[in-house]
Simulated assay, not measured.
Amino acid sequence: MTTPPALRPRLSLRTLRVHRQDSVLFIELSTPEPGNVVTDAMLDDLWAVLAHQDPDVRVLVLSGAGDDFCVGGDRTEIAEHLVVDPAGGGVRVSGTKARRVSEALTSNPAVTVARVHGKVIGAGFALALACDLRVGAEDASFRLPELAFGLPMAWGGLLPRLLNEVGPARARELVLTGRAFDAQEALSLSILHKAVPAEELDAAVTAWAKPITRRPPAALRVTKTMLNAYTAATRLADPSALDAELMAAVVAENGRGGAD
């Protein structure tokens, strides 16, 4: 069987590895030396892939190269943005990109699967949580350290998704303490749907992908749209559209000496 093209059109990607097997599209974060940190370049690459995704794709698998899935956003890049524009304009642009990518994962017509291992931190946590299904290695660790860095939980719509998935009481504790937690706790919180030995991650993804790819495409798209719609309906408000503005405002204030 001839492997279909991963993307239409063919793209030049700097931070990702992308390949396709039949109706399953694999996207790997591929800057492992710094832990697959989320940069503007990575967000641009992710958006390019998601915007040019073949409509025949039924399952999209997001993973990370190297020892970690993703250790979070690039704080050096944030500092560079502030040097260029102390008012936070560059941070605002980055935040808008983050929300666009996260929404593209959540609203993707394909079923999105996060395959995580190692460290899953901050922005990496947000990307994983934006996916429909999440499987993690048993030795994976999770953390939301934004508050310790003087940042609000305003990246890619992470906070409303976290509240919806784990509930307000537990979300509050994870966000305010910033403590690390393991895969078993992530499983108990519904942050993961499965926790397996690292060597079984691919098999777990395949176990989900096989039946999904056999579903009638129209029914699959409509069902996913319904799931997203009913989930959104349980939230009285979702102010995550303000994430970019809130992040820019706080980072700019910190840059002026506002942080303790």
Score class of each variant (00 low, 15 high):
P211W: 15
E33G: 10
P168D: 10
L7H: 08
M153E: 08
V116I: 05
E199C: 04
V93G: 06
D67L: 13
T106E: 15
R10H: 06
L246T: 14
D68V: 03
R20N: 04
L129H: 12
G88Y: 01
G150H: 02
K210E: 15
P34T: 09
P109G: 01
R14N: 14
V49M: 04
E77G: 11
A252S: 15
D40Q: 07
R235E: 13
C131L: 02
P109Y: 03
R14L: 11
V120L: 03
D45N: 04
S107A: 15
A104V: 02
N228F: 03
R170D: 13
M153K: 00
Q21D: 15
L192P: 06
Q184M: 08
G35A: 05
P34Q: 11
A232I: 03
R8H: 10
D139T: 10
A110Q: 06
H52M: 03
S141R: 15
R8W: 01
A198F: 07
I27V: 15
S190W: 10
G88R: 02
V205N: 08
R221I: 06
M1F: 03
R143G: 03
L127Q: 12
G136Q: 03
L246P: 00
L246A: 13
T225I: 00
R100N: 05
A154V: 01
T112Q: 04
L129P: 11
P55S: 11
E199P: 01
T39N: 04
S94G: 02
V222G: 00
L227S: 09
V24P: 06
G88V: 01
F26G: 00
D243N: 04
L13N: 11
V24Q: 13
G35S: 06
T206F: 02
A180Y: 04
P4W: 07
R58C: 10
R179G: 10
L242C: 05
D68K: 08
D54G: 11
A218T: 09
T231A: 14
I121T: 11
E253Q: 13
A229P: 00
K119I: 00
V175P: 08
P86E: 08
A204G: 12
P160I: 09
F149R: 06
L16F: 08
P239R: 07
D54I: 00
D40C: 00
A137N: 11
G35M: 05
G66M: 06
P211I: 14
A252P: 04
L62G: 10
A252R: 08
M153R: 01
L13H: 11
G156M: 01
L7K: 09
T177Q: 02
